[in-house]
Design a protein around this nucleic acid. Sequence first.
DNA 1: CAAACCGGGATCTGCCATTTAA
DNA 2: TTAAATGGCAGATCCCGGTTTG
Length: 373
Amino acid sequence: MLQRQILHFLRPASRCASLPVPPRPCSSSSKHDPPPENESLVENLSIMGVDLPSARRRQPGVLRKLLTNEQGLALFLKSKGADQETVASIISRFPRSITRSCEHLEERWRLWRNVFKSDGEVVEILSRSPESFFRSSDNKNLEENIAFLMTLGITAKDLHRLLTTAPRTFSNSVELNKNMVEFLKSVCLRFDGKDPERFARTVISRNLYVFIRSTNRIRANVEFLCRSLRLSNAEALGLFQSHGAQILDVSHESLKKNLQSLRAKLGSLGCGEEDFKRMILNYSLVLFVSSQRLNEKLDCLMDGGIHVQQVVQKPKVLDFSIDCIRQRLRDLHRLGYDFQKSGIAVLDTSKKRFLAKLERLSSAENEDTRSLS
DNA sequence: CAAACCGGGATCTGCCATTTAA
DNA sequence: TTAAATGGCAGATCCCGGTTTG
């Protein structure tokens, strides 16, 4: 074991020394054959538990490198609390991680720790998304990024959430992130908003994924929503600064599809354009639901004896899983609940509250039967 | 007291294509 | 030329509970 470690430590040098015919003039193999893999590196990784096929598939070039730092990386990550399995998984999913020097790792870690509270948190993000941490080797850019994000005036809590939820934001170039902020400000101005900075801040804190989206996508969605709903400036500003912020990053095609399908479905149920618009302004998250699923849910509610208008006015029911909706409808029917009379608000409460409600309803029913008998 | 209103929290990587650097 | 760096994309909800209101 000890010997192996020493070998690893010496590996780069000994490898060079022991290469008898270095790059080998393209003798037998064709010109287009890539250079061979570094066998001792591959063996090393294998011993460490790295999934070689996966690493090879992802970044084949790394396995051919002569100078790598897999041991340093492993020691480093372990010193931060990662176990061997985690290290292996990280390398398997992002092989280029082994090309980072120890100094580089120290520095990058220090920068991440400016935002995260503990090493443990960073390890967690890292094992979730190695690429976010390792894809860029530009620590200066990272530093500038953090500084830039802070200048936006978003709270420390939001910054933390942002980087926990969308760690890729970190490795974007500052330029890219700045572009996004500028773009958001321009959206605000386009709708005659008075405080672009605040608008950008609001959208970001309501949708932590904006930075890992392209401005093109967001722009397309803004334009599309604005156009197809004929939004006034005030409506647009209101929508995008509230729950609407979240639907900005849905893939443009899905958004179009979901919106058009919902429009058609509501139309077929006898709703007009006004109802449609009101529903979305009320609760734009319905646009998150895939068209097929949404149709199922609406059908399910209609079958349960609920009127479309009730759904239009309280679209949040559509937020619940179809199984949950079905089950609740069954439960309520069993107790003779009248949706026309009592409304559908019961459907969108927490499980705890719903069960409590059921209790009350059934005990009230018992009262009735007892008084009848 | 229960119902209604309202906002929040979890979650989101792993792959591909293009550009840039060595 | 190869590898590194970077930008971009697909995918497609569900649920909880504090506070206010009636």
